[in-house]
Write a protein that binds this DNA or RNA. Structure first.
Lengths: 140, 140
DNA sequence: AAAATGATTGCAACACTGTTGCATCTTTAT
DNA sequence: ATAAAGATGCAACAGTGTTGCAATCATTTT
């Protein structure tokens, strides 16, 4: 099943002018197949044992993918970046849900994130980061 | 000017059943007088030279104050907690603005943070964390 | 006022995320 | 097949934040 994502991953990487190395393909495939936003730890765990990747390489790869908008970074209150593949349904601006029980993070696409927020005079809007916290179906 | 806040700080600490030590009073006074949400580093810098506080004490004091709802923690994308005194005007739920230029964080009280967000079935809402990013009046 | 009590502090050490420099290896284009 | 550019691994580091424990201090009790 992951293999379906591997070919997609490879093509996406090529389209963005990157070298299709086994590490990059594996990482992006994992992200494409993940429903939640995942941490670097979770990615490490899901990598095949046959492909041990250095922590630094993982970080750099994630940075590279994010720079090409193939994935996006999600802030969380535990100071750990989470990453999620940018499916076509994702607008660049969307909200996230974090379960306070199991710490899983999912993307919420249907949230009205574009609004004219009432900022102080002279302040310029760029983007918003919105995280809804609560309990997921499993933990609730 | 800070002294006005020191007596308020001392009373707040006492009201919450804590011992009014010079460190706690100084820290809370700094937070009460701050307009923005401040990091532990900024607090350290603003402490009088006559009162050198251990990093750990600072962390623990901030944790203590937050546990009593005298201050609140603000998440940011730089993985650094910021803290802000809970003035009466602050509802427990409010949004923050972070300047992408100077990294300052202020509280936005007038934002409609209470809404029925459309969560997936079985999910329970607890609270939201909303950060608007942009440029402040100085950086804009 | 002094002693007892328990909260608070400082120190040392640690865990964790994330970054940087540099030498080495690999992909890709020639 | 080879050169060039890109990607990787290693070692070391920076920064935030935490934990255990002994020493100190504010407060209460005597």
């Amino acid at each position: 099943m992951i293999n379906q994502f591997r070919s997609i991953a490879e093509e996406l990487i090529r389209q963005n002018g990157g070298r299709s190395t086994s590490g990059r393909i594996a990482i992006l495939a994992i992200l494409l197949s993940a429903r939640q936003a995942v941490t670097h730890r979770e990615i490490e765990k899901r990598l095949p044992d046959t492909l041990p990747l250095d922590r630094v390489t993982l970080y750099r790869t994630l940075e590279w993918l994010a720079g090409r908008s193939l994935i996006h970074k999600v802030v969380s209150d535990d100071r750990v970046w989470r990453f999620h593949a940018n499916q076509t349904v994702h607008s660049h601006q969307h909200a996230h849900f974090k379960c306070t029980g199991c710490a899983q993070v999912i993307c919420l696409d249907d949230l009205p994130t574009e609004r004219h927020w009432p900022l102080p005079v002279g302040y310029q809007f760029q983007e918003i980061e919105l995280t809804v916290k609560g309990l997921c179906a499993n933990c609730g």
